[in-house]
Design a binder for these strands. Structure first.
Length: 699
DNA sequence: TCAATCCGTATC
DNA sequence: ATACGGATTGAC
């Protein structure tokens, strides 16, 4: 090690070195070379570098530990990936400066997953590992007990109540799924959860049952849900199923110390089951046997930091590389998952006919079926009579839920006659208008919609312009139900749960309070507002939100008397025969809508069959990056100004913020993106553009 | 002829 | 990024 081959003639005089030469430090006798992943944001340096291991670090410098190294003249953090006896690098190796902590926080399994995720999104390994390993907290390292003995604790064999078999009995494919999880196999499934949620048979119970079988089979598991409320809801049920001590909660809102402590409990083998939000998808669960993503179509599963991975993708890659089972669940199914189902990557697990008939809520579309409400006026009334009657009747039996879409979506444009959303004539992207007077244009390529552009569905030339402001919901409801207790949930006032006492619960989508006994009626207002969002996913997302609320309705079950009284009323949409999302809700057939969407998109060459890349930032930089991607084989759909978040520093940015959308042409999207990122970081200064693959940029 | 500066490139 | 080497330019 003391001498290296010199490829160029040595300088006449030995150069004096400003810093300590490596040869001064005695090196580790065994495997004196360390491969290190240096934590740098520079994309073109996205590869491991080798360092010499000083003798005094020989023991602590083990794979997976955090280290500090000198890199490009500065100290950097990094992870030790491997120890070897000889170096690939021909030059002199700098020594490791320190081992930050002997804790091997980056396990081989997580490293492999991070690599796969980075490759999939054309991102850097360093960025991805930053998402996977929480920041160190020294006190937490001291407070968590040392490594658990490898033997593991036997799970208490007491029979679960209800048994996993009972919970999954309503799903024809359920028993096989449980058996395979117990047997250590790796089933992969798209699970369409049944609504209705009778106590003991709701989705958290189903998740808990699957986890129990996995743990009984001697393996660990991971559950990723969209938000903190869902974590709380799942945690109790899962704790009962597998033992409180086996479960750990892993969410960002714990704060640095508690979060790192929870991470260490998993890493050191004290807990075998993790329940958390998207950041927990990389948790170092030992002998990973099952990964679950609940409500996989919720965009909270989309990570907002580079390389912007989606939970369902992270879990799919992890399950594959670690041989674990994969369960992607929800009341609805995303188009991405539908594709995997059709490609037989995932097996469909859905309720049987009988269970569906029993548990699917009865959905009424306001404006149908009642003679006096067939006319257009009734359809556009915000609170139609049929909804008022359902609420009034429901309030005699318990709480009722009214879902009101939030304001402020970028509205799209729809056909006046059948209300199908209009698509761009050039690239089939979603069409929208900032306000009623603005010309309608494509959200992707910017093309203005021709005035005579006919509806693809019915050929009509008439368009529905939307954007009517309203804040009258609470007022109207208050007038309609004087003296009733009103609970409002949404925005920064989210209510977690309501009791069984009658109350009028008004909530925005996703903020519906959980109600143990189920709501006696559910009314979905202003359906058009969801349907007409200028997003590729508008129909899917509308159904997801409706189903999320409708699933909270009290099951009407076998009692024929009550069947007529209660259920779900969808308001503000055209008759369901012409709107797929409405039809899917009425029939409770989310797979049908997903399949329909997927085949539409296949025909039009849209995601997920074609990958999209979105570049945002100052116009000049975006233009440059866009051209590089085009040179790499991608197809530029268009570049648009982004109205939002114009920071416009004090005279700093003459360049307006824009967003370019590209689709995958010939080349491979991740490779093109990786190359462009590397190129930009190699010479350009601060990388202000954001490049995302597979983002639904709609709104 | 030497030093100050620019530019390109590697970063272990 | 930033540190370094080699090339370039400018003044003695």
């Amino acid at each position: 090690m003391s001498e290296q081959l010199e490829l160029v003639p040595a300088p006449a005089a030995p150069r004096r070195r400003a810093r300590t030469p490596a040869s001064d430090v005695p090196l580790a006798a065994d495997e004196p070379v360390a491969t290190v992943l240096v934590d740098t944001p520079l994309a073109h340096l996205d590869r491991p570098f080798e360092y010499a291991v000083p003798a005094d670090l020989a023991q602590s410098a083990r794979p997976g530990v955090r280290v500090r190294v000198r890199f490009a003249g500065r100290d950097h953090d990094g992870y030790l990936l491997a120890r070897t006896s000889t170096a690939e690098h021909s030059g002199r190796l700098a020594p490791l400066r320190t081992v930050v902590s002997p804790e091997p926080v980056l396990t081989p399994e997580v490293l492999a997953a991070a690599r796969a995720v980075a490759d999939h999104y054309g991102g850097t390994l360093a960025d991805t590992v930053r998402l996977a390993v929480p920041p160190r907290h020294a006190r937490a390292e001291r407070s968590v007990p040392a490594e658990a003995e490898p033997g593991g604790r036997p799970l208490d064999p007491a029979p679960a109540d209800p048994s996993p078999e009972q919970v999954w009995a309503a799903y024809p494919a359920g028993p096989a799924l449980l058996r395979r999880l117990r047997a250590g196999e790796a089933p992969a499934a798209s699970w369409l959860a049944l609504p209705g949620e009778p106590p003991g048979h709701d989705w958290p119970q189903a998740v808990a049952s699957a986890l129990r079988e996995t743990v009984l089979g001697g393996r660990g598991a991971l559950v990723v849900v969209p938000d903190r409320r869902d974590v709380d809801r799942v945690l109790g049920t899962v704790g009962k199923a597998v033992g409180e001590d086996e479960v750990v909660r892993l969410t960002a809102d714990l704060g640095p110390e508690a979060r790192y402590a929870a991470f260490l409990r998993v890493l050191r083998g004290h807990a075998s089951v993790v329940v958390g939000t998207r950041a927990s998808a990389f948790a170092p669960v030992r002998r990973l046997g099952l990964v679950v993503c609940w409500d996989e179509a919720d965009d909270l599963h989309q990570e907002p930091r580079a390389p912007y991975p989606h939970t369902r993708e992270v879990l799919r890659l992890r399950a594959r590389s670690e041989g674990a089972g994969l369960l992607l669940g929800g009341f609805t199914r995303s188009v991405a998952v539908q594709r995997w189902v059709q490609e037989e990557v995932l097996a469909p697990v859905s309720g049987g006919h009988a269970a569906l008939r029993e548990r699917a809520p009865r959905v009424v579309v306001a404006g149908e079926g009642h003679q006096e409400e067939r006319d257009a006026a009734a359809r556009t009334a915000r609170l139609p009579g049929v909804a008022v009657r359902a609420l009034r009747t429901g309030l005699e039996h318990g709480p009722v839920l009214v879902q009101v879409p939030r304001q402020g979506y970028v509205l799209g444009l729809a056909c006046q006659d059948c209300r199908t959303r209009l698509r761009c004539g050039v690239c089939h992207g979603p069409v929208g208008a900032g306000d009623r007077r603005a010309a309608a244009s494509c959200r992707w390529c910017g093309s203005e919609l021709a005035p005579e552009h006919p509806c693809e569905e019915c050929g009509s030339l008439r368009r529905r312009t939307t954007g009517v402001g309203d804040r009258r919901t609470a007022e109207e409801l208050g007038r309609a139900f004087p003296g009733t207790r009103v609970v409002s949930s949404g925005g920064d006032h989210v209510v977690d749960e309501v009791g069984d006492a009658p109350a009028l619960v008004v909530a925005t989508p996703g903020a519906e309070p959980w109600c143990a006994g189920g709501y006696a009626a559910v009314v979905l207002l202003d359906g058009w507002r969801l349907l007409e969002r200028a997003s590729l996913d508008a129909a899917q997302e509308a159904l997801r939100r409706w189903c999320g609320a409708a699933a909270l309705a009290r099951p009407v079950g076998g009692s024929p008397g009550r069947r007529r009284e209660v259920g779900v009323v969808l308001c503000g949409v055209p008759p369901h025969g012409s709107v797929p999302a409405v039809e899917a809700l009425v029939r409770w057939d989310p797979a049908w809508l997903a399949a329909r969407e997927l085949s539409d998109r296949a025909e039009l060459g849209l995601p997920p069959l074609v990958r999209h890349v979105e570049v945002t930032g100052p116009a000049g930089a975006v233009d440059q990056a866009g051209r590089a991607l085009v040179a790499a084989g991608m197809h530029l759909l268009g570049t648009l100004p982004t109205a939002d978040t114009a920071p416009a520093g004090p005279g700093a940015g003459p360049d307006p913020q824009v967003r370019a959308t590209l689709s995958q042409g010939e080349g491979q999207a991740p490779e093109a993106v990786r190359a462009v990122r590397a190129d930009r970081s190699a010479r350009k200064t601060q990388d202000v553009v954001r490049i995302r693959i597979d983002a639904d940029s709609g709104a």
